[in-house]
Design a binder for these strands. Structure first.
Length: 116
DNA sequence: GATCTGACATTAA
DNA sequence: ATTAATGCCAGAT
């Protein structure tokens, strides 16, 4: 049985563990969550369970490096400032330089338990 | 209870 | 190379 809501839960774990000055995109998180194509669910997970206290959604961006289009916390401008405050570099297109800030699962070293 | 929508990414044509 | 369609999880209607 089990609701298997691990996905949503893992998403939080991952985003929660994103170090300062680093950004991840939904695809990476979805893969870590166990579903390489659940990128949608990842974004929705953050939207459904807004917990900025522990989940820095502003560190999660598109694979292209573009910022979240519907940033609920105040808009892209908010996310842009937050990331910039993290010393994250941007391009002229307001896209995060994933080349320098892309965090992979190998670097994460996260220990996520799919079953508690 | 079923159906659709929604912070995207990947694969196919 | 670009555009189209599909897949995915959970919440909302």
């Amino acid at each position: 049985m089990k609701k298997l809501k691990n996905f949503n839960r893992i998403v939080y774990e991952i985003v929660m563990q994103i170090p300062k000055g680093r950004v991840m995109y939904y695809g990476q998180i979805s893969r870590l969550a166990g579903s390489p194509r659940a990128s949608r669910a990842v974004g929705y997970a953050l939207h459904a369970n807004p917990d900025p206290e522990n989940i820095p959604c502003h560190r999660v961006v598109f694979k292209d490096g573009s910022l979240t289009p519907s940033f609920v916390f105040g808009g892209i401008d908010r996310q842009y400032k937050l990331l910039k405050a993290e010393k994250v570099t941007f391009t002229k297109d307001k896209k995060v330089k994933m080349e320098k800030h892309n965090l992979t699962e190998q670097k994460l070293k996260i220990n996520i338990f799919k079953e508690d």
